[in-house]
Computed example of a mutant assay.
Amino acid sequence: MSDSTDALEETQAFYDEYGTDEWDRLATGIDGELEFGETLDTLASALPSSGRVLDAGGGAGRYSQWLAARGHDVTLLDLSRGQLSVAVDRLNDADTDGDSDGGVDADSASADTVSTVSPVQGSITDLGLPANAFDAVCCLGGPLSHLLDEADRVQAVRELRRVAKPNAPVVVSVMGLLGAVQLYLLTGHNVAALPELLEHGDYDSALLDRHGYENEFTATHFFRRDELESLLATAGIDIETVRGLEGLASPFHADHIQQVGGELTDDERQALERVVTRTNDDPIVADLSIHMLAVGRA
């Protein structure tokens, strides 16, 4: 079994056991709310007003639910059966198709499911979906970051472009290397491994074992901004913008800084959000963000 297959199975097992944590993460704390809100603002401006949208690696379906509520016909694809089950539960709770009996079934879902949101189990490296089928393609929250093999990342972005209609928007977000290193420095987390992590961006058990640490997450490749731009360009995706999501507020991922955020007044919180929004387009800020987002055209 190849290292690439091992990493993929590790990631699938991790998210199968992750429960509602990914759903909850985007609605709790300054960091999660900023990532979600900034992503939604970008989608609102970049996507067409209607049409078919692929939410590739969409996990528990927060973005899919929002897209469906705006009238899009969404295909939600994810590797994890556990995350798709959470998505189905949340979609049924929200009743996005306007029919209390019109929920979706993860076990019977396929790419041909007639539903506002169609869950499909699959990998972003081999979508198994028709070419030129989608009016917009999204890959949000960092699915590309869970591909340690560069060849797999290249294959994945080629797949995203293949299923997009000509000139359709392709919106991708990944986990940022400098943001992660800064966070680990602030928290004293796995510090001995950070110089090596900076060299290649691969945060996995092999790296951590060499320094006597345990991997509490799953195999992750952290990106620099120029690396993300180069990756998308290899697939022929024309990049329009790369921006930070948490941006200057990325340190709020640290628990002790998150506590400070909880003490902000409403006015202070609004000021924080304005600062983040106004600076996220700065290339340096994007490179320092825990998550960065690119908008391009197929």
Rank of each mutant, 00 (worst) to 15 (best):
N92H: 09
E9A: 15
Q83R: 10
A111W: 08
S205Q: 15
I124V: 13
D152A: 10
R269H: 05
L26K: 02
R81E: 10
T220A: 08
A94D: 12
E10A: 15
R210I: 04
N92T: 13
L76S: 11
T5W: 00
A192K: 14
Q121P: 08
R153L: 06
G37D: 14
E229L: 11
L8S: 11
D31I: 06
Q121E: 14
T5N: 12
V295Y: 00
G19S: 01
G32M: 05
A60W: 00
P130C: 06
L293D: 03
R297T: 14
R297Y: 04
D238S: 15
V191G: 08
Y184D: 12
S145T: 11
A46T: 06
A294H: 02
D204A: 03
R81Q: 12
A271D: 15
V191R: 08
R274G: 06
S50R: 12
S230D: 15
V285G: 02
Q65V: 10
C138Q: 09
L40D: 02
A56V: 06
H256C: 03
E246I: 04
S50V: 09
T277I: 04
S100R: 15
R269C: 01
P130H: 02
D255P: 07
L144K: 07
D3N: 10
I284T: 11
L186G: 09
G59K: 03
H146P: 02
D202T: 14
T75I: 14
G58R: 02
V137T: 13
E229P: 01
P119I: 04
L208I: 13
A44D: 14
S50W: 05
T20P: 00
R153S: 07
I239R: 11
D267S: 12
L8F: 07
G71H: 04
V171F: 01
V260W: 11
